[in-house]
Nucleic acid binder design. Structure first.
Length: 891
RNA sequence: GCCCGGAUGGCGAAACUGGCAGACGCAGCGGACUUAAAAUCCGCAGACCUUAACCGGUCGUGGGAGUUCAAGUCUCCCUCCGGGCACCA
């Protein structure tokens, strides 16, 4: 007969017929189990049930739904459980952060993976004695709320907040250890007012400005996108929607002011993946070069070119302008043929851009151009060079004009070949090769020729000297240009932070006075799909008074890009309740920088560059000391199913709720860590989750076995009188402790950590009979099970909490010190030495640990299998690698 | 085109500094328990050859070359897959 229920303790607290039957039926039942539930009730009414339980107890069934139903409310009720201690705590601080989700209403497996990694780390660090800050929040502004409003007629705020509630519930079900007292919700005025506050501070410092500019417009979103949000010519949210170019008055953050520092800072970010640093470096695109002014013959006009190879300027045989360049337009207007050709190029580029894969399409375009009929004068040698308009010159990089040096640039070479322009070599390879270097010779490892007074200089020296001369003679200067553009933050949308600016007829642009913050989003608003900012159609919002003149004024109706919200949210976690400031600098100084940030690599440029920029702005405002938000960054791999990334469109989405219902939260999160190392893509196989569930069930069964239960009151282990089997078990235990500790502190291969725990459990399992018979003393049994529980705690918190209670552990298992590794116990007393002959394995000989090289050599030679291999041949060499192997080289 | 990952059994993977390739798990097969099934437990499991069976042998980490007593791991060349950048002057 089976007497169910987890332990006598929970019995006493919850022992009623109703709760017992309820708990059993909470799980998927067979009728058989139902009938066993009735048996429980009978035992429960027995006043001596405690004694009966101990006498008759048998291993119990692992029912994750019961454990979750028991522990989740307890954890929810105990607010101190995951709360960080304030600054000044005696413990060292550790800030572990996972990227906050957009509250779509459904947690997906990517979240589960991300948060399972962070949660394991947070729990481990608590157990290692750190003061851990482990917060969570919601990136709650954004377009989907408006789309939902259109579709379901639900106000964005209501829709968002109910999604948040649903996802918070899912996170709690998963057992994630967040300190909810620091929760941040970016769509609430308590948060976004500080966006506005920062905006005003930045406006004061000229870090915000407004300009008319060509912008990316997504017709689906009916709003503007930042450059970073355009992917292959399409909107980052609507992969099939081509982005249009429009001219609009927009607000910009002057991120380029920090471009240099943002690149330089990457070198110090050793805790960030090289991949992310490279992506950011490419994105910012810093390049050193020079501006050179060419005057136009028979005109007052000047054309400034940007070049990184001013040393090749004596080889410039033409200038090339982007078709949209101001001077190009002028020349085009003066000549119908030129005008038509330029217009055709612009049209062609537009088509290429719209072909979807813009970069590739633009690359494919054959280089062509048109001669404008005009000439420019090279200031270095006074030579006249023809001015062309060319389709391969980009308007928005450098100056939109280049000098063409066919001898030393691939593209210019192609172009010159096509149009028969002269090709004048001005650099000679430093080392003459045979056959001679092909044209174009693009390397900078060379010496100048045909370059007047500069002839004979190295490229590097010439670049410096020529830039200096250009500056001295006032026709150019050394410069650094960036690919990075200022961050356009205006969005013509409703569900975002209102930009705190006014337009007054008399005073022009006027910032909203600080004491009038927050500028609240109006609640009652009709969402329509008309163009323009929705807020412009709300008179009560739009019309206000100018704080300067008291006259009528209109509010700015654009809202901020939601990447503003996520640029600094993690600072707010340090002081989330503060209603007087964005945060208390002292609190932030304590917690920052973030010790470990964890999230998807898809944010490598957008969010992570903006955050680094914002951090520097706050530093320069004197609010914080750190220049970088996070010391270490970890980017986890994607969750794949059936060969492709989980997505609604592929129809291969697995719902976490489903997994929890079938296998429990512990098995779900543990599988997310077990199936692959966290930085690699993970293949979701439901059978694998079932496997983890079976494993946890075996652990539970072993821990509730009679032998384990009898050990609960046992004393401490006497290390001086251990039996061989006890030694063996403790050895495995301590080897496991060592492995997992090492991994948490290092490479984070949680898949092998969990495999190691499985090996330990397999070993306990095969000693089952000896545990039961008493060959293994209760003290050792208890030691093994309590340590196993602690090792499981970061990965399977529900089961760990239950077992901890079962074994009479004090307090929360997550605040119990991590088991200490004892090298003496972990040491093997015999080692197996593989013996190879000519590199092929012949046999494995067992040797006492610490055997001398000589002893190992002797044993290897004495081995019969080895002897038969060696017989009749000469042993030329014997390689003994202590602790590894023996290799006999035989001829 | 350039940069960064990756390729190991039927599948997910392991092997951290060159030292027993395939730990751990999934799926599979055989057995025990059961009237039966499920669950559980025990065992087998890279491929091929050989054998009645054991024994034994050969090959094997995308392909090819190399360094080494020894290569999944290091070097060079190539193929394929994934990601990023892409006329950036």
């Amino acid at each position: 007969m089976r007497i169910a229920l987890h332990s006598s303790l929970s019995f006493g607290q919850h022992g009623s017929i109703i709760s017992a039957t309820h708990r059993v039926s909470a799980y998927r039942n067979t009728e058989q189990r139902q009938s066993r539930a009735v048996t429980i009730v009978v035992v429960m009414t027995d006043s001596n049930h405690q004694a009966n339980l101990t006498e008759k107890s048998e291993p119990q069934r692992y029912t994750p739904a019961e454990l979750e139903a028991k522990w989740q409310p307890r954890w929810d009720a105990d607010e101190s459980l995951y709360r960080a201690e304030p600054a000044g705590s005696a413990r060292p601080k550790y800030y572990v952060l996972e990227m906050l989700p957009y509250p779509s209403g459904q947690l997906h497996m990517g979240h589960v993976r991300n948060y399972s990694i962070g949660d394991a780390l947070a729990r481990y660090m608590w157990m290692r004695g750190y003061n851990v800050l482990h917060p969570m929040g919601w990136d709650a502004f954004g377009l989907p709320a408006e789309n939902a409003a259109l579709k379901n007629n639900t106000p964005p705020r209501e829709w968002t907040l109910s999604n948040i509630a649903a996802m918070r519930r899912q996170m709690r079900r998963m057992g994630f250890s967040y300190d909810w007292s620091t929760e941040v919700t970016t769509c609430l005025p308590e948060y976004y007012r500080w966006n506005q506050w920062f905006f005003l501070r930045m406006f004061e410092r000229d870090l915000v400005y407004r300009k008319q500019s060509k912008v990316n417009w997504c017709p689906q979103c009916a709003t503007v996108l930042a450059n970073e949000q355009v992917v292959n010519g399409c909107c980052w949210r609507h992969e099939d929607t081509l982005v249009e170019q429009r001219n609009l008055e927009q607000w910009f953050f002057r991120i380029t002011k920090y471009a240099d520092e943002l690149v330089a800072g990457l070198d110090q970010l050793e805790g960030w993946p090289e991949k992310v640093r490279t992506m950011q470096r490419n994105w910012i695109g810093r390049s050193e070069g020079a501006y050179v002014d060419f005057s136009v013959a028979d005109s007052a006009e000047r054309i400034t070119v940007f070049t990184t190879r001013v040393d090749t300027i004596f080889g410039a045989t033409s200038l090339q302008l982007a078709p949209e360049h101001a001077v190009a337009k002028q020349f085009a207007a003066a000549d119908a043929n030129v005008g038509a050709a330029a217009a055709a190029m612009i049209e062609q580029q537009k088509i290429a851009r719209e072909s979807g894969d813009m970069g590739a399409a633009m690359n494919e375009l054959e280089k062509h151009g048109v001669f404008t009929g005009r000439y420019a004068i090279n200031p270095f040698n006074g030579e006249k060079v023809p001015v062309w308009i060319a389709n391969y010159v980009l308007l928005d990089y450098g100056t939109g004009a280049i000098m063409s040096v066919p001898a030393h640039d691939e593209r210019d070479f192609d172009f010159a070949k096509k149009y028969d322009l002269p090709i004048v070599p001005v650099i000679e390879p430093a080392v003459q090769s045979d056959p001679p270097a092909e044209m174009p010779f693009v390397s900078e490892d060379g010496v100048l020729i045909n370059s007047g007074e500069f002839t004979g200089l190295s490229c590097e020296a010439a670049q410096k000297k020529m830039a200096a001369q250009a500056e001295a003679k006032n026709y150019g200067k050394a410069t650094v240009v960036f690919r990075l553009k200022d961050w356009g933050v205006s969005r013509q949308r409703y569900w975002g932070t209102p930009i705190p600016m006014l337009h007054c007829d008399k005073d022009g642009l006027v910032p909203v006075p600080e004491d009038q913050l927050p500028v609240l989003l109006p609640e009652q608003i009709e969402i329509t799909q008309q163009g323009g900012s929705p807020l412009g159609r709300v008179p009560s919002f739009l019309n206000t008074t100018c704080p300067k003149c008291g006259g009528p004024a209109q509010r700015e109706t654009d809202t901020m890009d939601t990447f503003v919200d996520s640029s600094w949210y993690f600072y707010r976690y340090a002081d989330a309740q503060n209603s007087n400031a964005a945060f208390d600098p002292a609190k932030v100084a304590y917690w920052f920088p973030i010790d470990q940030y964890i999230g998807g690599v898809e944010h490598a440029i957008l969010h992570l560059i903006y955050s680094r920029f914002w951090t520097r702005v706050m530093r320069d405002l004197g609010l914080i000391k750190n220049s970088e938000p996070a010391t270490r960054l970890f980017t986890q791999g994607m969750v794949i199913k059936d060969g492709s990334k989980m997505s609604k469109s592929k129809g291969n989405v697995v719902s976490p709720d489903d997994m929890i219902a079938r296998y429990g939260a512990d098995a779900t999160r543990m599988y997310a860590l077990f199936a692959a190392p966290p930085d690699r893509d993970l293949d979701w196989q439901e059978d694998g989750v079932a496997g983890i569930s079976r494993f946890l069930s075996r652990v539970y069964r072993l821990a509730t076995s009679p032998a384990a239960q009898r050990s609960i009151s046992a004393g401490t282990v006497d290390l001086n009188s251990l039996q061989p089997l006890e030694q063996k078990l403790l050895r495995k235990l301590h080897q496991t402790i060592a492995k997992i500790s090492l991994d948490f502190d290092g490479r984070w291969h949680f898949n092998t950590c969990i495999a190691a725990i499985m090996e330990l459990v397999n070993e306990i399992s095969s000693a089952d009979a000896d545990l039961d018979s008493g060959v293994v003393t209760p003290a050792v049994v208890r030691e093994i099970f309590t340590s196993l529980t602690l090792l499981l705690a970061p990965f399977a918190p529900f089961l760990a909490a239950e077992l901890w209670e079962l074994f009479g552990g004090e307090g929360a298992v997550f605040r119990t010190p991590w088991p200490t590794f004892n090298p003496d116990l972990a040491r093997d007393d015999t080692i197996e030495v593989p013996v190879q002959v000519n590199g092929k394995l012949v046999n494995v000989v067992a040797m006492p640990a610490g055997s001398s090289e000589d002893a190992i050599r002797e044993a290897a030679l004495a081995d019969s299998k080895v002897q038969s291999r060696v017989a009749g041949k000469t042993v030329a060499k014997i390689i003994v690698v202590p602790g590894k192997l023996v290799n006999l080289v035989v001829k």
